[in-house]
Nucleic acid binder design. Structure first.
Lengths: 107, 107
DNA sequence: TTGACGTATCAACTTATATTGATGTATTTT
DNA sequence: AAAATACATCAATATAAGTTGATACGTCAA
């Protein structure tokens, strides 16, 4: 885990950062059922368009969502593989963390 | 997932927030091998004591670490069950996110 | 019981994130 | 071509998070 490239660990950090905000989590939750455009999200979440654009950009940079333009609409959807990346990152902690007896500071 | 209590989703958000910071991730990484006190972490990470106390508090509030006092030392260790909670939260996205065909805005 | 040590906390400051309202840019409709 | 729509971006502001140095608190050793 320590030898993982900076690039991918930056992406992991970006992912966790993206997941630490209420509105962004609400966006992701809505995207679980279907692809949505920004105006759909504005309605559902009663948030302004520019606010949503901001948070969607954060989610996109973390690669938790994808976007696809269709005419004047921009459709956002979950990018599930990146969720798996984060999940596996956490799983590493379980795998390689032995329960080791206390080592005293005053040895 | 939407019906999860506010309390636990706050904890999940706190967990992801805690994981989005370099120094905190370094702390967690060190704790993977063994329990450590603050002075150990100061040395290993070349960071000031008050800085580490700050970040350890963030980690503790997110329940990603536990602490245990022994004399004048405070030993920190990973709280693996909370890692599992976060992992499972992410896993939910995989489980219940069907690939549904695009619904157009102009239907 | 005094002094040193390990840690937590605090106040002041710096830096990073988020919000708001306005403007810009495609795209479509008329 | 002009007006309307959907969205992104920007500058200004507000809020939150992190850093720093100082101080306070409990514990231990002398």
């Amino acid at each position: 885990m320590r030898q993982v490239s900076t690039l991918s660990s930056d992406l992991v950090a970006a992912g966790f950062h993206a997941l630490s905000e209420t509105l962004r989590v609400q966006i992701l939750d809505l995207l679980r059922t279907r692809e949505l455009c920004v105006c759909d999200l504005c309605e559902e979440l009663a948030a302004t368009q520019s606010k949503l654009s901001f948070h969607l950009k954060v989610l996109k940079e973390a690669e938790l969502v994808r976007s696809r333009q269709e005419g004047r609409w921009m459709y956002y959807s979950l990018n599930l593989p990146q969720f798996v990346v984060l999940e596996q990152y956490l799983a590493e902690y379980r795998r390689f963390s032995p329960i080791i007896p206390t080592r005293s500071c005053d040895d």
